[in-house]
């Protein structure tokens, strides 16, 4: 479980997060949704300690994020950052191998190689292993980066907008894969999503944010409704139910 207590964050005089308290359930897929600038990415960065906490506490499992060592945190939690720069000049396997760094510190063992092979297989990249990253499409590269997170073998995985650059087929298969990974390897996965429908269809738990506060949280059928769309997204879209899953008509 990730528990966040009274976390506030500001840049200059602008409040990005105001007094957030939240529990993210263990072993589930949780989606963070909300309009641009709601503070979703900032919240994720604070959990992963990409930014320093200004106030409040964050606890990942038994680790207190403000106090544990970098390496300790990296063995329990991995993050896919939002900004993908241009492709590094590495092969698929080389990049995924970096995911093992928190364990081997530069001297990979047989066990690390096995974990890399496993990650490549799970993400369907085994055939591409020797390909250079700049020969891949943006979507494939995104998958390779998530495979690197998976090779890090952490109980908690945070993904900041992993569906960027993906077409509908790529997005669906990635979401299905992440649900599968969460279930099979009992991983807690937190995903920042732009599209409510992906959250609704694939996530176990949804947290809706706006203006640095949490507006609603619960299962998709509990919280995805006309009120949420009006209050959080300022829009009056219609909602349909398909097999009990609320789907927003866009």
């Amino acid at each position: 479980m990730i528990s966040i207590r009274n976390v506030s964050y500001q840049i200059g005089s602008t409040m990005i997060l105001s007094d957030i308290s939240l529990e993210i359930p263990k072993g589930k897929v949780t989606a963070l949704i909300g309009p641009n600038g709601a503070g979703k990415s900032t919240l994720l960065s604070l959990i992963a300690r990409l930014e320093r906490l200004q106030s409040g506490t964050v606890r990942v499992g038994n680790l207190l994020v403000g106090e544990c060592s970098n390496r300790e945190l990296a063995q329990h939690l991995s993050i896919l950052p939002q900004t993908l720069d241009q492709a590094p000049r590495l092969s698929v396997r080389e990049l995924v191998s970096f995911g093992r760094y928190p364990y081997h510190q530069g001297r990979p063992q047989a066990e690390d190689n096995r974990a890399v092979d496993h990650a490549l297989t799970v993400f369907g990249l085994a055939d591409l292993a020797q390909r250079p990253l700049d020969a891949l499409s943006g979507g494939q590269r995104q998958r390779v980066q998530i495979a690197m997170n998976f090779a890090q073998d952490t109980e908690y995985m945070l993904l900041d907008e992993p569906l960027n650059n993906l077409d509908i087929a790529g997005a669906r298969s990635l979401m299905a894969l992440l649900c599968d990974v969460s279930e099979r390897h009992s991983k807690t996965i937190v995903i920042v999503l732009h599209d409510i429908n992906y959250a609704s269809r694939y996530a176990d738990h949804i947290v809706a944010m706006q203006n640095g506060t949490i507006m609603a949280e619960g299962t998709p059928s509990e919280i995805v409704n006309a009120d949420l769309l009006r209050d959080v997204f300022q829009t009056n879209a219609e909602i349909m139910h398909v097999d009990g899953v609320p789907i927003v008509l866009v």
């Binding site: 992963a48 990409l50 300790e72 900004t83 720069d85 970096f98 760094y101 928190p102 530069g106 997170n149």
Partner: peptide, 23 residues
Amino acid sequence: YFAADQIAIVGLGRAITTSLGLS
């Protein structure tokens, strides 16, 4: 050469470096 991995990782940017447990 002993820091080769660390330097290559830093070349991937601050976020990835931090998430891999490096300062």
